[in-house]
Write a protein that binds this DNA or RNA. Structure first.
Lengths: 210, 210
DNA sequence: GAATTATATTAGGATTCCTAAATATAAAAG
DNA sequence: CTTTTATATTTAGGAATCCTAATATAATTC
């Protein structure tokens, strides 16, 4: 069926993109509001979050790649964090490399700040369960698609994990299975940063999920 | 039903938030890649987009509010755009105020750049129609919720428009109605920046949609 | 005419971002 | 054993982004 909206509107993919862009702007603007003397700037906060997720610390190059900025930018931010006593710089195992990790103070701040801006979580919670699950599913697919195209570094998604077994259970309320913890689960349980994630070699499981 | 995932996972709202935050970071990082000598920086590009949508130009204060930055930051960015010949500064109708508008060059650049980063639109297009519609619906609700709480300035959403008539048609493929163009439409047609939008006085229509 | 109000800019400074060049270091090559 | 090479980080330099606080300017109000 064709309505006037089919012809005068931007395609839905563009409107959804515009919505994501809009939310991105809000997040950036909000993040600066936390840049008080006791707090950290957006880039610094992002780096603290990455270090918190990374077992055993990260090199400067790894941080720069994950932040999506140049090495000098990352170096600046890390030096500032080090001077604030939030991050520790230790020699790495490769020539000239350093290993960055959180100090107890940095750990505490990252814990307190969290990776989830409350105002946005509050907004997500105004959606009902099905809508939240659909939103999460869409976001997982977006991130996965960007990963495949090389637009973003690999992330620890269930759908790219060696232990992911999609649609193996007949029960619609938990059709997938995690072979690591050996338990069934549903789309709404999909994770974006699983600590136990192991990258799968091929796409076969993902294909069964999509 | 309760699985292990219910207990060890972050709540779904937090995971969805984390996904949005992640996409926001990518967008910011990408936007800087366009900051070539011929291109514009992220904040400047955002401002160009706002001016393109605004009939008749905007004051500096309005730009600052819409960008979500302080007046001095906006003033800097607009001066740079003016010196690049992309924006025109004219006296406004209030004391000391200015009216900012796009020059033909600015119009052309805004047109060319667009508000929709292609790499993200491409990712959205990997979702099927139902998923795209669900994503758009979720984003519209998020933006609406943030608007209501005062987290972001008003935006021209269908669901807050005087002409929006939700769920008035029995046909599930186009249950809503736009009283301005007098045509039925569906969730997938929802707009985030309609030129004809007029803010509704109350919530009654939105309540029927949610 | 003086005080108030609204709006934008200037001042000053930290951070974010870039590219290009310099530096340090371990391993490999001669 | 010395030199080269590859790698990783930092320095240098500069534009843009961000903030708060102070300042200019024009219209309105008293």
């Amino acid at each position: 069926m064709t309505t006037i909206f089919e012809t005068i509107s931007e395609p839905i993919a563009r409107r959804a993109t515009a919505g994501l862009v809009r939310i991105g702007h809000v997040l950036r603007s909000r993040a600066w509001k936390g840049a008080t003397p006791e707090g950290v700037t957006p880039t610094q906060g992002h780096a603290l979050g990455l270090l918190r997720e990374a077992e055993g610390g990260l090199s400067l190059g790894a941080i720069a790649a994950l932040l999506g900025v140049s090495a000098p930018t990352a170096s600046d931010a890390m030096s500032t964090l080090a001077s604030k006593g939030l991050v520790d710089k230790a020699p790495g195992d490769r020539p000239r490399s350093i290993n960055l990790s959180l100090t107890p103070q940095g750990e505490a701040l990252a814990e307190r700040t969290g990776a989830w801006p409350d105002f946005l979580t509050d907004a997500v919670e105004t959606l009902n369960d099905a809508e939240q699950a659909a939103l999460l599913r869409g976001l997982v697919k977006l991130i996965r698609a960007m990963q495949v195209k090389g637009d973003i570094p690999l992330q620890k998604l269930c759908v790219t994990c060696r232990y992911f077994r999609p649609n193996v259970h007949p029960e619609p309320e938990a059709p997938h299975h995690c072979a690591l913890v050996d338990a069934p689960f549903a789309d709404r349980h999909l994770r974006l940063a699983c600590g136990e994630h192991q990258q799968a070699d091929d796409d076969s499981f993902y294909e069964q999920w999509r």
